[in-house]
Design a protein around this nucleic acid. Structure first.
Lengths: 259, 259
DNA sequence: CGTAGTCTTGAACCGCGTCAAGCTTGGTGG
DNA sequence: CCACCAAGCTTGACGCGGTTCAAGACTACG
């Protein structure tokens, strides 16, 4: 069981679906979320407007076009933002990991669908008080600006992937992104052999990458056949050589994935 | 000659490449740029740190990875942000129109290449004083947050296009986007017959859409052959029926292009 | 009149989507 | 314990949309 899942189970046991007064001080995303730079008095303010909600895999968090009376952070798990065309073609446009922010202040209508990809716990803030706080404490607004700019950078990297990479490069890039993120979370170096867990089904990966799930499956098989990756079950991947994977991704060696 | 080009020529005549103390009050993007909500005293502050620069079509504005000692707004013209893979494949990741902002506060290394697509005039602010002003006047930071969120929305719409639309839909979408923007600038209704000017070469359109320039050319020819669009020369398009174009774009009727 | 930049058009190829079948795994009930 | 089923995944055969390569047209500019 991963550390992520551990944290999640704890929280779920303590707060079965509604506000139970979690202390922000013990929050696993305390120093990465919107509240990163908040002092104790501001945390107190936040605790007054916050509540936890959890979602099962596949369950909708908000539906595009609907009223959204809260904003909030992903505490544990992974959520996906998706857009769809009339005829049902869908494209993922955001992948929310722990500490990422959902919702746009000063707009109460959700612009996209948000769905839980794994089990998700969110720390939600009631919209009105949160907006007011943003007006009064500049550094919360400033932190949100920073996070939004990071998201924009990620979106642009993603656009390069969608517009110009081959199916094989897309798959390699995706695995590399997930690997880097797990590495920064777990403070491991991406040097040696690493084991990572894919948080998405093949279909969700296809929606992320602008492919079909058949192509995703075939390319994963190909990378496995050629020894770039190894599989343990369907969802966990072992990387014997991270550098080799990056070569297959089409990026230059230290391609711009911070965060 | 379009209104855009008119404004541009005026400014170029007045300020041949460096600060000549343009008054912000007369600025064509006064109420749409970062400075939108600034009062007269704040404008005075901005005038002290600003200078104009102009760029010829094709000329680089900043190069990804380089030091960038200014940030600023596009006053007239169109600039493109692009990313490239090692082997030369390039993807446009941002299209900057008048009032759009270039550069990221609190990061002095440019993340992308920015190139002038047409002749461009930029209102630049020296980085240091601008960052300091942002810290002191919250509503500038707030305006920047709003603009960044709008950019993120646009990027996500774009991701749907790149990942899931056919070549034909991509072309139709692009023309529709340009048409909507010209309509809001010129305050015309997108109902009747409208004439629009493409600000990009076929190659730049291809980089925008994740296609080759041949495919762009072919699809434009196809749309013309079928009467969806008419051509006057290579770069100006007449739309006999805007609704028809939108049908071809794959979006639902009032697809989310605000801005 | 010639040349360079931009655009168009054609023909052949191929990567990925489509359609279809079968496999693997975990859960449920007899 | 095994039979059954559904969800997720894999694999194959085939066709199409878009790329690639190549030739030529249009326009601006010397």
């Amino acid at each position: 069981m991963t550390t992520r899942e551990n944290a999640l189970t704890q929280i779920n046991q303590k707060s079965p679906g509604h506000d139970t007064g979690e202390r922000c001080g013990e929050c696993p995303i305390r120093y990465r979320a919107v509240c990163a730079h908040c002092e104790t008095d501001e945390l107190a303010l936040l605790e007054g407007m916050k509540f936890y909600r959890s979602f099962e895999p596949g369950q909708p968090i908000v539906w595009g076009g609907e009223q959204m009376d809260f904003v909030g952070s992903v505490v544990t798990g992974v959520a996906a933002l998706t857009q769809t065309l009339e005829d049902g073609r869908t494209q993922m446009v955001g992948l929310l990991l722990p500490s990422d922010f959902l919702g746009r202040p000063s707009r109460d209508i959700a612009a996209y669908n948000a769905t839980a990809a794994t089990r998700v716990v969110m720390c939600c803030f009631r919209r009105k008080p949160f907006e007011q706080m943003m007006r009064q404490t500049p550094h919360v607004a400033h932190r949100l600006l920073e996070m939004t700019l990071d998201e924009l950078d990620a979106a642009r990297e993603w656009m390069l992937l969608l517009g110009r990479k081959t199916a094989r490069e897309k798959i390699a890039s995706f695995i590399a992104i997930i690997a880097r993120r797990e590495a920064t979370l777990l403070k491991r170096n991406p040097g040696g052999r690493m084991r990572i867990e894919l948080p998405l089904t093949r279909e969700a990966m296809a929606d992320y990458l602008g492919l079909t799930l058949e192509t995703v499956s075939r390319q994963i098989s190909a990378l496995k056949r050629e020894g770039v990756i190894e599989l343990e079950g369907k969802r966990t991947i072992v990387l014997p050589d991270f550098g080799r994977l990056v070569e297959e991704s089409g990026d230059d060696a230290d391609g711009g994935y911070f965060s």
